[in-house]
Design a protein around this nucleic acid. Structure first.
Length: 673
DNA sequence: GGTTACTGGGGTTACGGT
């Protein structure tokens, strides 16, 4: 049996004299049937049931939609949507009752719904004007009713197709064809697109709103419907006031005063359960709304939505629900289009460029909420001392900058000498106009009016040094991974995805979400040693560990980080090895040999304290200083990070924390020419 | 099967349910 006459439509396909579908065509029923794969190219001939006038898109084309049905679907008046993207002037013009041949269209699933999609190079859309088909009744062909094409067609319909169109016109039950005028007037309204988008803070009772929200609690399945708690991190006084006290919640539903429906009794068995599903993952206060979603939305939610998902919800009816206590939302089955799903899952990890601005703003609000929430948890006083320390630093920094300039001038002569040291000219360094300062002077403690020593200063330097060690010891560990945090899409985010200590999230928040992607970044440290022609004999050159972060490592190596422990990236590892060889000569070979001889106590940590003027602190490997490599010009920045203070140390960065100065490499590039 | 690779609306509108 031909696939154009499957058993599934046998019963609906009556009359033995019915002509077969023209070769290469598929019935609407079969297109709607799951036996046809997605993205298959099909051709269809059908009667226009509904359409939407073209609207502009954010892309180049305009978009219109034509709903088609045929004799295999007329019993249910079911139809398939044909989404058409074309320039406005090329858009086909149709009316209800017209017959359309759409050849070479793609069967697609978009936002949960099946539809057909035109493609510019392959698809032909031929429209037969219903009013003229009547006039063709005397002939065997509907050819005379064919409207002039709106764009160049690949192929004219053949005689069989013209005949089939006429047959279909006569065959179709006219009572199921919607009235032309009625559809036209409805279509006119489709160009008046009402922007129903609303923030939760602005939703109004009995209105319909489109929302961009995050699911803050696992959807609760109620059989024929699903309950969803969502937030966009705005506040609405009419919302339920979620408190930290979870005793007023059962199974995701707040227990109302009076408990009219006896929830407490009914569900008391599960009340004490604190499984992940019961967990509240949203903001406190009046920031979340409960939605009741009927089919087919409920089914979509069951399959595609979980706690943490960001969703775009369309046509949510806002109301007070039966209890008339708090504002709730209702996502109902569309009466006119029962298959239409008004839920779509948004991808916050998408390119920032393509991300919906409204989603970005919601994520920003969440970030701010989380920050403020953290402050509240900490008593709201923590930030002040931090700020004052920074102000302090800012003042002193300005003064130091002035002093630094004078000092730099004095050191100019010295640096000129250093320039004669035979630098590695494969290493290029930015800020060539800036005075080079000796590496040792960067390491000197910073004093303010000689009354106290600053923990660090923020400054950039240009200097000359050579690499005498690196960390981690294995080049494969120069790249590390982290999950792409939710707030990373915010351009001003400073919460660092992997910066778990500064994160305010709960443990659950840190748990990897299915949508999180693994991000690979460079992170390694180089131990630099001073090169100086004026160093007195016998005196050890100054040295210090210098961190190389992802951006600076990208510049340095001209490579992007990936999992270097994966065999797939063996090429990248080799490239990295070659690049580093230019920078540090045979250092890796020497280090490998030494490490191989070392006891199996594991690698030592990079010294947390980077000031290692004497060079023999933890992390230094004896013998590596003898490595033969050339010094090079590089840029070094000094900055401070907050670390936990030991009991006997001064906590100068707020409660229990102290400042520690750190050095970083920047503006330095390995070149092979 | 085939191309190119993006674009994506409606509404005097709403029930059902604990």
């Amino acid at each position: 049996m031909s696939r154009y006459q499957p058993t599934s439509s046998f019963n609906r396909r009556a009359m033995p004299k019915d002509p077969p579908l023209p070769k290469g065509f598929t019935s609407v029923t079969d297109i709607l049937d799951d036996s046809i794969h997605h993205n298959r190219t099909v051709s269809v001939v059908g009667v226009v049931k509904d359409y939407m006038l073209p609207r502009s898109t954010v892309g180049h084309d305009w978009k219109s939609k034509i709903t088609l049905f045929d004799q295999t679907t007329e019993e249910w008046s079911e139809g398939i949507n044909l989404d058409v993207f074309l320039p406005l002037e090329e858009m086909p013009k149709v009316e209800a009752g017209d017959i359309v041949i759409a050849s070479m269209v793609t069967r697609q699933r978009y936002k949960g719904s099946l539809s057909l999609l035109n493609n510019k190079t392959m698809t032909d859309i031929h429209v037969y004007d219903a009013r003229h088909i009547v006039e063709c009744r005397g002939s065997r062909s509907a050819r005379g009713a064919l409207r002039p094409p709106t764009r160049k067609v690949r192929r004219e319909p053949d005689q069989k197709e013209h005949e089939y169109v006429l047959w279909l016109y006569n065959k179709i039950d006219k009572t199921v064809v919607p009235d032309r005028e009625e559809v036209a007037s409805r279509a006119e309204q489709t160009v008046n697109i009402k922007d129903k988008f609303s923030l939760l803070q602005d939703v109004k009772n009995s209105r319909f709103s489109d929302l961009i929200v995050q699911v803050v609690k696992a959807p609760y399945d109620l059989g024929d419907r699903a309950s969803l708690w969502v937030s966009d991190y705005t506040e609405n006084n009419n919302f339920f006031n979620k408190t930290k006290n979870d005793s007023d919640w059962v199974d995701g539903i707040p227990i109302r005063d009076g408990d009219e429906y006896g929830y407490t009794g009914k569900w008391s068995k599960t009340k004490s359960s604190t499984t992940g599903e019961d967990r509240w993952d949203g903001p406190y206060g009046k920031r979340s709304i409960q939605l009741t979603c009927w089919e087919p939305h409920a089914d979509f939610i069951r399959k595609n939505v979980d706690v943490g998902s960001w969703v775009y919800l369309r046509n949510v009816q806002i109301g007070n629900g039966k209890l008339d206590t708090n504002t709730e939302g209702f996502l109902r089955t569309d009466r006119a289009y029962p298959d239409r799903i008004y839920v779509s899952v948004l991808d916050p990890q998408a390119d920032r460029e393509t991300l919906d601005r409204r989603l970005l703003e919601a994520i920003r609000r969440k970030r701010d909420y989380v920050k403020d929430h953290k402050q509240a948890l900490n008593g709201g006083t923590k930030r002040k001392p931090e700020g004052s320390v920074q102000n302090e630093n800012r003042k002193s920094r300005r003064k130091l900058k002035r002093e630094g300039k004078a000092k730099a001038y004095q050191e100019q002569e010295q640096s000129k000498q250093a320039a004669l040291l035979g630098l590695n000219d494969h290493i290029k360094c930015e800020n060539a106009d800036k005075t080079t300062v000796p590496f040792s002077s960067i390491l000197e403690p910073v004093r303010y009016d000689t009354t106290f020593e600053l923990p660090f200063t923020c400054a950039n330097y240009r200097t000359q040094a050579r690499v005498v060690d690196f960390h981690p010891a294995n080049l494969r560990d120069f790249a590390t991974s982290r999950t792409n945090g939710e707030f990373d899409v915010l351009s001003d985010n400073d919460d660092g995805g992997s910066d778990s200590d500064s994160s305010t999230s709960s443990k659950e928040d840190k748990k990897r979400r299915p949508s999180d992607k693994l991000i690979w970044e460079w992170c390694f440290a180089l131990k630099l040693e001073e090169v100086s022609s004026t160093l007195p004999k016998g005196q050890k050159p100054a040295s210090a560990w210098v961190l190389v972060d992802n951006t600076d490592a990208q510049l340095l190596t001209d490579l992007d980080a990936h999992n270097l422990r994966s065999r797939d990236n063996a090429d990248l590892l080799e490239k990295l090895r070659q690049q580093m060889f230019i920078l540090w000569g045979d250092l890796e070979e020497r280090k490998s040999a030494i490490e191989a001889r070392k006891s199996k106590t594991g690698w030592k940590q990079v010294p947390a304290h980077s000031d290692e003027e004497n060079g023999d602190g933890a992390g230094s490997v004896p013998g590596l200083s003898q490595t033969s490599n050339k010094p090079f010009a590089c840029c070094i920045r000094q900055y401070g990070v907050k670390v936990k203070a030991e009991e006997d140390e001064e906590a100068n960065a707020g409660e229990g924390m102290k400042w520690q100065r750190v050095f970083g490499l920047f503006g330095t590039k390995i070149t092979s020419d």
